[in-house]
Amino acid sequence: MSGGHAHPLHRPGNTPVHRLAPQVKIVAAVLAVLCVVSTPRERYWAFGVYLLLLAAVWSIARIPPGWVATRALIEAPFVVLAFVMPFVAGGPTVDVLGMALSEHGLLSGWNILVKGTLGVLVSLTLAATTAPRELIVGLQRLHVPAMVITIATLMLRYLDVIAAEARRMRLARISRGHNPRFLWQVGATARGIGTLFVRSYERGERVHLAMVSRGWSGKMPDSGRSAGAVAWLTGLAPTATAAVVLGMALWP
């Protein structure tokens, strides 16, 4: 990916975190997320420790927390459910600010919110310190099948394409006199879903043909830099700490 196509989630830099081999960072991130999601939801302190660990990585990588926070908003649609749960779930209730909320629902809402947020933060840290091109090379070095890499990377690229096309179609509807309120535009979006698909495909097809005509063969050129034992050890250190925290959290 050339400079002109810089990804909005990437923050170029030259810190130890940026220089670490991508395959080490991918393994570290996946294992860290596994630690987070395996933590029992009632162990509130463990999630605080995970956040501190992430903050330490951010300070080494020189990423301001505010930069991460604004980009973490992409998870907003996912956590809406978390705020609905205390109101719809059954079981015993507790009083919060005069409202009777379901205890079970509060816990499941908290579960989605905290694990989703930490998962997004870990992914953002990986994306901020690793260029998209490097991520693909890293997956290749981990021997992920080429086809899975193709589908997964195109999927992540096309999420942006779909969002941009949906914005354009909404703008087109508004400029033709459509007056959408918050929920009423859902109906128009649903009716236009097939059009959205075809439009996104045609943009995606142009992107793909441009890639093919520049020599894309389903594989990224790889300079073959392999990671030594030191890189693996230092790269996995934060994740190892997270694993220790998980062990303590699982301790009865």
């Binding site: 996912f78 999927m155 999420l159 996104s200």
Partner: peptide, 23 residues
Amino acid sequence: LDDRTAPMAGLVAAFVFATQMLN
């Protein structure tokens, strides 16, 4: 999977991803 279906597969995945968010 060929030149024509690779972007299609990526788009279908992205589409399924997006529609699974609609609860």
